[in-house]
Structures are given as C-alpha cells and as structure tokens.
Amino acid sequence: MVPSDFKTLIQRFYHLQSERVETYRLFEEGHEAYLRTGPHYDFDHYKQLVHEITQAFNGISKEVLEIKEKLHLDLDRPDLCEHMDKLQSKEKEKLELTAKLQLAKQCAQDHPEDEEVEERIQEIKHKIIKNKEALSEIMQDFKYDSEDCD
C-alpha cells in the first residue's frame, strides 16, 4: 500500500532508489562470483540470481510507478512525475548496460586474446558512468522540485 501524503511519498521514493543501488551491488557481486566459477560456469546459480534481481527491480519499479500516479492524480505534481519518468527510463538503460557489461566481462575471461572485448568493456563502462551522471542529475532536479513544497 502506497502512502498518500506528500512527505511520506517522497521519503518512500528515496528509499526505493537506495534499494535499487543495493540491488545493483548484489547483482555485481553475484556476477563476480559467477565469473570465478569459470571456465565451467555455474549457470544455474547465476540464472537464479538474475531471476531474483529481476523480481527486485520489477517490485521497485512497480512501487515507483504507484508513487508517480499518486503524485500526479492526488497531489497534482506533473513536474515530479516527469522526473520519475526520466529516472525510470535511465534505470532501464542502466540495467541493459549492466547486462551487456557482464556478458562482455565473461567474453573477456573466456577469450583473453581478444583485444576488442577489452575495448568494448571500456566503452560500456563509459556509458554506465554517463548514465549514472544523468541519474544523479535527475535526482538533483527531483530533490530541488520536491523541496519546493516543504
């Protein structure tokens, strides 16, 4: 059940964002553990991790969308909803980039002679940095606009 007063909604939104950060950390740690099982990878264990991470992200996204709906319908804050839309889009992009990076890291481990893989890893890492900068900027805008009402 999503709370309906403004301050509680905003606090819940920030909590969900920190849950996202923690979920990424667990995902990265799990992938590193998976890579250590190579060359005969423990894919079943990794597949379970991906399933759990996906469920966590879906739950977070669902609740963020519920908060967005309350901000839009009940509290008439289209400005904050717009930030949340941008954020959701960038979070989706970050997850896609993270998955690409994980595949590239496994490829690099399996084919250490392939120099192009290392270039691809650096390229993806650079895109992730840009993505995180954009996320940070969106969160700053959200914080600024949400404090407007305190």
Score class of each variant (00 low, 15 high):
residue 1 M to I: 08
residue 1 M to G: 10
residue 4 S to H: 12
residue 8 T to Y: 01
residue 19 E to D: 14
residue 23 T to P: 01
residue 24 Y to H: 10
residue 24 Y to T: 09
residue 24 Y to W: 08
residue 25 R to G: 09
residue 27 F to R: 05
residue 29 E to F: 08
residue 31 H to T: 02
residue 33 A to K: 14
residue 34 Y to N: 05
residue 34 Y to R: 05
residue 37 T to N: 01
residue 40 H to I: 09
residue 41 Y to L: 05
residue 44 D to L: 06
residue 46 Y to F: 13
residue 49 L to Y: 00
residue 51 H to A: 12
residue 56 A to Q: 01
residue 56 A to D: 03
residue 56 A to V: 00
residue 57 F to V: 02
residue 60 I to K: 00
residue 60 I to Q: 00
residue 61 S to F: 10
residue 62 K to N: 12
residue 67 I to L: 02
residue 69 E to S: 15
residue 74 D to H: 11
residue 76 D to I: 09
residue 77 R to G: 01
residue 83 H to M: 12
residue 85 D to I: 13
residue 88 Q to K: 09
residue 91 E to A: 01
residue 94 K to N: 09
residue 94 K to R: 15
residue 98 T to H: 03
residue 98 T to Q: 04
residue 99 A to N: 13
residue 101 L to V: 02
residue 102 Q to V: 03
residue 104 A to M: 05
residue 104 A to L: 06
residue 108 A to F: 08
residue 108 A to L: 07
residue 112 P to T: 07
residue 114 D to F: 03
residue 118 E to S: 11
residue 120 R to N: 12
residue 125 K to R: 13
residue 126 H to G: 12
residue 133 E to G: 03
residue 140 Q to G: 08
residue 144 Y to S: 07
residue 146 S to A: 15
residue 147 E to A: 05
residue 148 D to I: 10
residue 149 C to I: 15
